[in-house]
Design a binder for these strands. Structure first.
Lengths: 137, 137
DNA sequence: CTCTCTTTTGACGTAAACGTCAACTCTCTT
DNA sequence: AAGAGAGTTGACGTTTACGTCAAAAGAGAG
C-alpha cells in the first residue's frame, strides 16, 4: 500500500516570487482572495506543488485578460480529484464554456496577427517606394 | 482627380455604444486618453469610420489583456499612411515586437486549451467510472 | 547573544478604467 | 411654448490588483 507521500516538496514565498517574478504581496493577495491556500509552518507560508501549479494557471489567465474572480472559478476545473467528486457534470459544463471562450480568443488572436501582418506589408511597400523615389532623384 | 470623399460616414456616440456594448463614458474616456479623436458638430462628437476601426482594435486589445497605454502605442501600427510616413522603420520594429508577443500568446493559449482538454478527459473518465460503480452495485 | 535575512501582519496608498450623479445644451416633436 | 431624448462637461466615487511602509517575529551565522 503506497502512501500518498513523495510529492511533499514545498516552496517558500521567496522562491515562488523569484521563479514567477511576482512580489510576496501578490501571493498574499492571492491567498486572501482564496486563489491559493498555502499551508503553514508556524507563521510561515509553505507553498505546495499544487499551489505552484495554481499560480502558473493564475498568471496564465491574467495574461489573457481574465480577472482574478474569473480565474478563481476556473481554477477548480484544473484541480478535480482533490477530495470528493463535486458536481462533476456542472464542472464539465463550465469547462466547455471556458473552452469555447479560449477558442474564440484564439480566433481573434489569429485575426489580430493577420491584420498586423497586412499592415506590416503595407508599411514595407511604402518603405520600398520611398527608396525607389530616392534612387530616382 | 478623385476627391478623398466617399467615406464621410459618421456615427453618434450612442450608435457606437450600441454596436460595441460600451457606455458613453467609456468612449469619452478613450478620447481623453487620446485613443480616439472624434470630430465635432458643435458640441456633439462625431465618430468617423476610422474612429470606429480604432475602437474595434482597442476592444480587441483589451480582450487580450493589454492596457490602454499599450494599446495606444499599438494603434499607430494599424493606421499608417495617415499623413506623413513617420519613422517608418521604427514603427516596423514595434510591429515585430508586437507580433512576437501575439505569437507567444497564441502558443500559451494553445497550451491552455490543451491542458483544459486533458482535465476534461480526466473528469469524463471519473464520471464513467462512477457510472460503472453504480451499475455494479 | 547579536546581527542579518526572510517573512509576517496590519494598514494606508495608488494607478487604471471606468461608474455615477448633477446641471446644462440642442434638437425635435407635439 | 413645452417636454422628451440624446449628448455634453465637470466632479467625485468605485473596483481591481496590487505597492509601500512600519513594526515585530523566528531562524540561522558568526
Amino acid at each position: 500500500m503506497m502512501t500518498n507521500a513523495m510529492t511533499e516538496q514545498t516552496f517558500s514565498i521567496g522562491e515562488l516570487c523569484q521563479e514567477f517574478d511576482v512580489t510576496p504581496r501578490t501571493l498574499r493577495f492571492y491567498e486572501y482572495k482564496e486563489l491559493l491556500a498555502p499551508i503553514r509552518d508556524g507563521q510561515r507560508r509553505l507553498f505546495t506543488v499544487r499551489d505552484r501549479a495554481r499560480l502558473k494557471l493564475i498568471l496564465r489567465g491574467k495574461r489573457f485578460g481574465f480577472s482574478l474572480a474569473e480565474i478563481k472559478d476556473l481554477l477548480d476545473l484544473y484541480h478535480l480529484g482533490d477530495g470528493q467528486v463535486t458536481q462533476l457534470s456542472a464542472t464539465l459544463e463550465t469547462a466547455e464554456r471556458h473552452r469555447a471562450e479560449l477558442i474564440s480568443k484564439r480566433e481573434e488572436l489569429d485575426a489580430a496577427i493577420k491584420d498586423l501582418d497586412q499592415q506590416v506589408a503595407v508599411a514595407q511597400k511604402m518603405l520600398a517606394q520611398r527608396s525607389g523615389m530616392r534612387a530616382a532623384e
